[in-house]
Design a protein around this nucleic acid. Structure first.
Length: 865
RNA sequence: GCCGGGAUGGCGGAAUUGGUAGACGCACUGGAUUCAAAAUCCAGCGAUGGUGACAUCAUGGGGGUUCGAUUCCCCCUCCCGGUACCA
């Protein structure tokens, strides 16, 4: 054995051993308990970043741990290879997205391999491979047949200068990111997937997922947004020329008698009617159509409105209520119209105050009156008043009574409303999966026949920022109609990349299957036992995946209800963001490693400058490591300098996996130092020869006995941390503590040598999921002619965990004052007497009367005086 | 705006079911070793007061429940993620 730890050499050898023995090849073995450990596949952005290292190390720790526990483990890897960044890079470098993507995949694959992950690389897939997206297209056509996919219009961001559709990310402060031109909303034809057909199941099945974090389930439930309320029809006021009755949905029917106006979206039919002969309204509606489509922008924009001059009648009182157009009412949610109750809704209150509309209070707290005039909306549930026959009712009673009255008049009924909308999948972009449809002048929209799938995306185009290059490439779009044979035009929109990532976990089970989307192997491996990925995917990706797996189930492709049994959402790895804004509004981001921070005399930050030109850059706060913000940290330097084991250990030790982590590499030295100490401890021990652990030895000194107690306690703790808690940082800390205690077992006598061997073997086994290379190598030295790969997880010896005496802490009035030593099974009275006899305790009691003595078994005594 | 999460020494974090606040590590300081440095080893290391034993304060801020609160409840501040075309 070498005296020094040389990570590069041992990591190369260990990886070579795993490759030669095909150690991680996953094979379906019926009747063996399986463990499918799935990590969210990366977007091939160029280089790995620290978030990837975190994600894939977590997956690898769990995979290796389960393997030692006797499971048949599958850990696959692939590439989420379609997407916008490839087109941006293509424009910047004049390289086709395909080449950029495949080059990135090659580089990142090499990086991943250098981390020593226990991946079955034979199952690698990339979503830009026609063999993969073939089945996107195939399933889309099945969904079209079943009515689960359909066409309708939708809003997109339109850049009027580049004449192109922009992604939300490409809209900055309402302007196009390349042109700086104010973005317009534009309505276009799009394809949708009917996720709302599964609303109830998607919501209710959350309760069948105990292995998912509560926060993710809460977010999904809120996103689906089930609300019980009442549809209310406000009849048209014929005198004012209102063309039709107005339907609204509200969850606060109890406030109906407080409604003082109604508001409609700019796109609402009544708005379009009112706009005729009213140029001011037309201008306002036009203004509402500007701006981005992002919900955050819409919700924070200044609330503006305009009176239409039209009226509806209040369904209970017949009072005339004015109809306003308001920019905060969304056509896409509910009916595109709301009833406004300024007294009991914050948004309505703000709007009514601004436009001096009446505010009528009808709800008050049960036991006290409202202070009027209201300074702000009273939004809590309460009791109705000033509501005629509906006065004096609590929330539910009021809703029920008003709904019943409306129903009798034919002006309303109870209804359940969801926030969830259908999933628009059309993208006017090149680098994505082509939507397999053909537009024929005679036959209309015609699906591409199955035997002509896949519709292959040409890989040699370079986008130029204006429109979709596919639409300018006749060799792609020119085709013949499969029905009538006449010349036709191929659909040039591609699919949302979330489609690609909605089923890749199923394809891993059968990547070599070219005749079908999946085969019987999918039901051996799925559902994935553990899914690991960033919290940023808590809603969209995970909801779309759940939806797709249910569609696949209903088509007979899968036998499962939910695709991911357990979910671990890792916290994001954040880093600083530095940027400069050019005059045309375009923002350039600079990597933090290229930026120097300027400090004042007190060490406070005063600015940041770019090393390249010594000019200042703006600090954009901290945020997730991403290609678009150029704030990723390449882990390669770490791996090259210290080795993969140090990088893995450091990442796992830095914080618990679910926690957000601000990047800082302080501490890497500590991780490296620990591995060096582990190596040296083993080396020193083995200098006196290999020992076999002798379980019959019972002659442990008190010191060795306590060390052996610590050893087996550590096995219990580390097992629990890896298995149940997934807190790898505390597992590592416990092993470090054990290592620190190991000095006690230093000695030449057989009992010390045996205990040292026992401890080192256990330590190497316990650390092997986290730092597999060094453990692989140390094991060969500790147990020549055996392989760590074949070893089971260490078992704690229960006899070592028995203690005769235990330590209790003693508090006086809740403050720690002393400690006592008592027998393990001491009775309460004895514990109390021992505590009260303690000199330190006596000093604090100081003759005062004892009110109460609290004894928490195994923990503490609290004396209240 | 809305939904979800977070805030503990100089730093990353620990305290698992309401029971010793600061485990483990980094940084720093002192010492040993060295011609010297690196590496390594030993010791110290929340704040304030005290020679010291020790005492008091302290888990983003304010209030509450409890014998006891980092942990539970209410209010507030700031930060992060998502917000349907970034992935």
């Amino acid at each position: 054995m070498q005296e020094k730890y040389h990570p590069q050499e041992i990591e190369k050898n260990a990886q070579q051993y795993w490759a030669e023995t095909a150690a991680f090849k996953a094979v379906e073995i019926p009747n063996k308990k399986k463990y499918y450990c799935l990590s969210m596949f990366p977007y091939p952005s160029g280089k790995l970043h620290m978030g990837h290292v975190r994600n894939y190390t977590i997956g690898d720790v769990l995979s290796r741990y389960r393997r030692m526990r006797g499971y048949n483990v599958l850990q696959p890897m692939g590439w989420d290879a379609f997407g916008l960044p490839a087109e941006n890079a293509a424009m910047q470098n004049n390289v086709p997205p395909a080449k950029w993507t495949y080059d990135n995949i090659a580089y990142m694959r090499k990086q991943l391999k250098s981390l020593g992950l226990s991946i079955d690389w034979d199952r690698e897939l990339a979503t830009c491979d026609p063999n993969y997206y073939h089945w996107n297209q195939w399933l889309f056509l099945r969904m079209l047949e079943k009515g689960l996919a359909y066409q309708t219009t939708g809003n997109v961001n339109w850049d009027p200068v580049d004449q192109t559709v922009l992604a939300n990310e490409q809209v900055i402060d309402g302007c196009g990111w390349r042109t700086g031109a104010p973005v317009e909303k534009r309505e276009i034809q799009m394809y949708y997937m009917k996720i709302t057909a599964y609303t109830d199941e998607l919501l209710e099945a959350l309760d069948t997922l105990p292995g998912w974090p509560e926060r993710v389930k809460t977010m999904q439930a809120n996103w689906i947004g089930k609300s019980c309320g009442v549809d209310i029809t406000f009849p048209a006021d014929p005198e004012s020329g209102t063309p039709q009755a107005l339907k609204v949905f509200t969850t606060r029917a109890d406030t109906l008698l407080g409604a003082t106006y109604v508001a409609v979206a700019a796109e609402h039919p009544i708005a379009l009617h009112a706009e005729k002969n009213n140029t001011a309204l037309t201008a306002f509606i036009q203004e509402c159509k500007l701006g981005a489509t992002k919900e955050a922008d819409l919700a924070t924009q200044e609330k503006k409105g305009m009176d239409t001059g039209l009226f509806v009648l209040h369904p209970i009182t017949d009072e005339k209520l004015p109809i306003w157009i308001a920019n905060y009412v969304l056509m896409g949610y509910g009916e595109g119209a709301v009833m406004a109750v300024p007294a009991h809704d914050e948004r309505d209150f703000e709007f009514a105050t601004r436009y001096t509309l009446p505010i009528k209070a009808v709800i008050k707290a049960k036991d006290c009156d409202l202070e009027t005039p209201l300074k702000k909306a009273f939004v809590a549930h309460g009791v109705t008043f000033d509501s005629g026959e509906f006065s004096g009712l609590e929330f539910q009673a009021a809703v029920d009574a008003i709904a019943a009255a409306l129903k009798q008049k034919g002006l309303g009924d109870k209804r359940v409303q969801y926030r969830l909308r259908d999933w628009g999948i059309s993208r006017q972009r090149y680098w994505g999966c082509p939507i397999p449809l053909i537009h024929c002048e005679s036959c209309g929209v015609v699906p591409v026949p199955d035997d002509q799938l896949p519709v292959v995306l040409p890989e040699d185009l370079v986008p130029d920022g204006s429109g979709n290059p596919l639409a300018k490439t006749p060799s792609f779009y020119e085709c013949t109609c499969p029905q009538c044979g006449k010349p036709a035009r191929r659909e040039t929109d591609t699919m949302d990349t979330f489609v690609d990532s909605s089923w890749y976990y199923a394809r891993y089970t059968c990547t070599d299957q070219n005749k079908a989307m999946t085969d019987e192997r999918v039901n051996y491996w799925l559902p994935a036992d553990q899914y690991i990925g960033g919290i940023e995917h808590a809603i969209l990706h995970l909801l779309y995946s759940r939806f797709w797996s249910k569609v696949m189930r209903d088509l007979g492709l899968l036998k499962l209800d939910e695709p991911f049994t357990n979910l671990l959402t890792q916290g994001m790895v954040l880093n600083e963001i530095f940027s400069r804004k050019a005059e045309n509004g375009r923002i350039t981001y600079f990597n933090p490693t290229d930026v120097d921070i300027q400090l004042d005399e007190q060490g406070k930050r005063i600015g940041a400058i770019l090393q390249a030109d010594n000019q200042p850059v703006e600090s954009g706060g901290i945020g997730t490591m991403s290609k678009s913000k150029n704030n990723g940290v390449d882990p390669q330097r770490l791996v090259d300098e210290y080795g993969a084991d140090t990088a893995r250990l450091f990442m796992m030790f830095a914080s618990p996996p679910t926690q957000t982590l601000e990047w800082a590499d302080a501490g890497v030295d500590g991780a490296f130092r620990f591995l060096k100490r582990l190596w040296k401890q083993t080396y020193t021990h083995l200098q006196q020869g290999v020992v076999t652990v002798d379980p019959t030895l019972k002659t442990y000194s008190p010191e060795l006995k306590s060390l052996r107690f610590q050893l087996h306690q550590t096995i219990v703790k580390v097992s629990d941390d890896l298995d149940r808690r997934h807190t790898f940082n505390t597992a590592i800390a416990a092993v470090m503590e054990l290592m620190n205690g190991l000095a006690k077992a230093q000695g030449p006598e057989p009992v010390s040598r045996s205990l040292m061997q026992e401890a080192l073997e256990a330590i190497v086994l316990m650390l092997s999921p986290i730092v597999p290379h060094i453990c692989h190598t140390l094991w060969q030295e500790l147990r020549p002619d055996t392989q760590l790969f074949d070893q089971p997880w260490p078992q704690a010896d229960s006899s070592a965990l028995v203690q005769d005496e235990i330590k209790l802490i003693v508090q006086v009035n809740g403050k720690l004052r002393s400690q006592i030593q008592v027998a393990r099974d001491a009775e309460r009275t004895i514990i109390e007497r021992t505590a009260l006899d303690d000199n330190q305790v006596k000093k604090f009691i100081n003759g005062q009367a004892i009110k109460k003595v609290i004894v928490v078994p195994g923990r503490l005594v609290n004396i209240v005086i």
